[in-house]
Design a protein around this nucleic acid. Sequence first.
DNA 1: CGAACCGTTGATCTCGTTCAAGGCGTGTGG
DNA 2: CCACACGCCTTGAACGAGATCAACGGTTCG
Lengths: 251, 251
Amino acid sequence: MPGAREGPPLPMRPVLGEAGIVLAAIERQRMVPARTDLLRQGETPAVAHILLTGHTCRFRTLRDGRRQILAILVPGDLCDLEAVLGARADYGVSALTACTVGEIPCRRLADDTDAAMRAALWRHLLQDAAIAREWLVGMGRRNAQERLAHLFCELRVRLEAVGLAGTDFYETRITQVELADALGLTSVHVNRTLQELREAGLIRLANGRLTILDVPALERLAGFDPAYLRPGRALPEAERISLTSPPAAWR
Amino acid sequence: MPGAREGPPLPMRPVLGEAGIVLAAIERQRMVPARTDLLRQGETPAVAHILLTGHTCRFRTLRDGRRQILAILVPGDLCDLEAVLGARADYGVSALTACTVGEIPCRRLADDTDAAMRAALWRHLLQDAAIAREWLVGMGRRNAQERLAHLFCELRVRLEAVGLAGTDFYETRITQVELADALGLTSVHVNRTLQELREAGLIRLANGRLTILDVPALERLAGFDPAYLRPGRALPEAERISLTSPPAAWR
DNA sequence: CGAACCGTTGATCTCGTTCAAGGCGTGTGG
DNA sequence: CCACACGCCTTGAACGAGATCAACGGTTCG
């Protein structure tokens, strides 16, 4: 287990915040290696994937090869939103690391009789939209340093919410190419910007672990306000569910 | 009526595609002048606004004044999504032009017993998310010409869907500053890029009317594929509803 | 052992920004 | 009715953040 090698250990049972009700609908669990496609651009999802361990992303590839990552997904996230409506997805979903995913039949998601499911999906989708908006702000109005810093802050909060990050560090095996595709930059420039953040004493990133050396400073630089990551109405503690088993592998 | 001055007239009764069921829930109708705030950043919407005529936008303003438009809304669109959950909105909503908006009480949107309403909202929200993703692709991987062209193509299709655009033109009083804020550019550069598009014989934009002189060429330049604007499952024609009265004013 | 992937660095270029100014149309108050 | 302000569009000149092109070293893996 890579997390045990350095720094304090992470909680053994990640809490999948909003996803509690959704988790109960998982019919089958599957492990997939990194770079596996879970959904191809333009297809209609046959099942919905909920991520249990690892990272996936939604992405778009343009005809000429330019690629844009549209979302980075962490455990507890629903990968293919259009599954709810049985609609075509304009994006692909791909595993950034080795992952375990839960499969949920579309008819369970669309189940009209399950009010709890509906509410969970709503919250999920709205949160998803809020994150997309925040990325939009970043791409439009933030420079490379701010974008990178903001993404790191966002991932920290999202991972912490499911017990996969400490207050100042988390595991991530995201590459610089992937960061570039997520932030609308080139990998060359990501590399240089990372160096600036390192030299400024803000972060350490090596061996699949990001450590934020100065959380307030990084958040200030990023203009980070975690409000958009909080679900609108507070969720009663009882609704939060833990996985029954620790994650088999994070990478 | 500005549309009658030049070119063929637009249909008198815009069809508000998906929004049929939602329209029926309107309790009150309101006219607001341009630049009115319908929702302020950080507030929880008290009522949901559905746009009936004119344009509004969702936007974010950063502390230092940088502004990013997150969505441009056209008749039939729901302005404040978080109204469904009674959640705080991380964005503001503002009228780009004079508008008429329908107000829907939040409880009607969240009404658990109304399956048709739920389905309509789902489709709406997914479409909203699809548009946001497309913008994300543009901001990350398209240059100024492509972005501008893509936005023009998108608005044409969306407006045509509600009967407010012909096959190659529509009314829009959006300013260059607003275009810049939507596309993550400066108004200076938008101005120059617009000139390039004009000189290339692709568009004409004056007096609140955009004419696309060569639709296929513009779509090719933009890399535009309208698939993301189509609802997943085809909607039976019967579900499409017309307004009972023509729009009082578009500007 | 070679291929592929990833991070790194340097040199150069360019797209879009910044700063500054002027013109035009419209509304407004003296 | 004119003066003035303001919003919007336009233009020029200089600058800079990030892209592009090219190359190299380290690690992993077949």
